[in-house]
Amino acid sequence: MDTQGTAEPGMSGEEARSPNGPAAGAWVRAAVADYEGPLTLYAARLVGNVEAARDVVQETFLRLCRQSPAELNGRTREWLFAVCRNRALDVRRKEKRMTPLTETQAERAPQAASPAPPEALEKRETTARMLDLLQELPDSQQEVLRLKFQHGLSYKEIARVTELSVSHVGVLIHTGLKTLRGQMIPNAEFGMRNAK
């Protein structure tokens, strides 16, 4: 498979040529099945809407098609999140250039990301308080907390995806969790339910 003639920004000629035989299909399909949901969710938070997020995720997978499994060395998840993140940030930068967001729009954007039917949105407040609190945190903390608790990445993986140091990741998670706990504890009526 080659894509000569399609100029794809951000993709070197080498990447564009597929190193994969037919057997690679199964590997990519498995990755799509496992990660299309998580990656779209992750990207939606970064770019602010689901449609743009889907495009980002699709491109991530298209790149995976051209990636040889051996090079990823078992780090497929990390690679996917990293590529997805870079692409999402590119899109966000581009969008910002085109329609500069005001401060408040930028804050609201991630919430608009949810494609839930309107009824579901209305009721969401009653069912997801911790998520509401999470929305109030600075973007960097939100992102890292999501990578850790929503997507199950380790500190080290998060550090490689976000290009931060492991200790910086540790500080962000610590601070975010501390803020959330501080706001949660007064709500004693909320029955504690440990997921484990």
Binding site: F149, N194, A195
Partner: peptide
Amino acid sequence: GRLEAELQ
């Protein structure tokens, strides 16, 4: 645990 449950 709670954050994880809600996020997941």
